[in-house]
Amino acid sequence: MIEFENVTKVYESGNKKVTAVNDVSFHVEEGKICVFLGPSGCGKTTLLRMVNRLIPITKGTIKVNGKDVNNTDAIELRRSIGYVIQHNGLFPNMTIEENISVVPKLLGWEETKIKKRYDELMEMMGLDPEQFQKRYPYELSGGQQQRIGIARALAADPPVMLMDEPFGALDPVIREHLQNEFLKIQKEMKKTILFVSHDIDEAIKLGDQVAIFNAGKLMQFDTPDRILSHPKNDFVRDFVGEDRSLKRLSLLKVKDLVELIDGFVEGRNKSDWSGQVISVNDNLRTALSVMLSEPNGEAGVADEENNLLGVLHVSDFSLLNGVHPEDLTIVK
């Protein structure tokens, strides 16, 4: 869907040359979220902004849906790609409805169609269309503004979305909430999304694929699990952190581990269990945390209907050696 072929960006100032993006090639498939990850100044935002030609490409080609972006009219290209930035970039002089309707209006949609789309998007974002219609951005909280920013980018239903740290300026609680909602919406929409982040946890949570950059070079392009289990070089290893095995656990569910234990349901049911209980749908990182807080390193496991299935012990985690989420149900 989106192909980067030997993309290079060189900034020249006077006789100094700075290579912001250095010979980057990879391919993002349709309907996937690809997270661009890396420290600030690594070229991830530059690369993103080259996709809708906000920054001209020095060398190489970027193709969206098979078409070279340099052969597409810049204005037309941008209208066909959703764009969300960190501080939402809502127009303060326009109402919420006007903000969301910008691109449909640019595309010359009919009034009734625009209104219908506005209602639809607000419902999708969990906001009351009536209530917000005539309000202005400054009257909204940061989280609400960011939702409107996303709704606005989705307005013309573009197949491709570019998101530049959309949740970066929010507090952790709101951020996690919006990430979850975003994943839920994406499950239905199946957009192809390029998502810039500097937060490894966000990348693991949201990304189907993660591209890690350093100093303009692509360090590794892989699934979150592969990045955590097989970091390609020292930079990636350092960037994902020493606790990468722990982070990997957040990709697996308790269900996955339980299925690996023979006779878990029949043999491990301690009916007198009085400790903490976790759900089969919790991720293993949470589960481990719960178990470590128990004196014996054990926790009860309950199914969706809250029936106790059995008891899990910390030592069971050794069964996970060599197990990758692709082989199991993926927590997404």
Binding site: R78, I85, G89, F91, P92, N93, V103, A153
Partner: peptide, 25 residues
């Protein structure tokens, strides 16, 4: 500059950015 950037990224022409974003603000 962020809202000008947003306007540009959404595919406004420079004329549209001026009349709809810069001048009112």
């Amino acid at each position: 500059p962020l809202i000008i950037e947003a306007g540009k990224g959404m595919g406004m022409t420079s004329k549209q950015i001026f009349f709809k974003v810069e001048l009112p603000n």
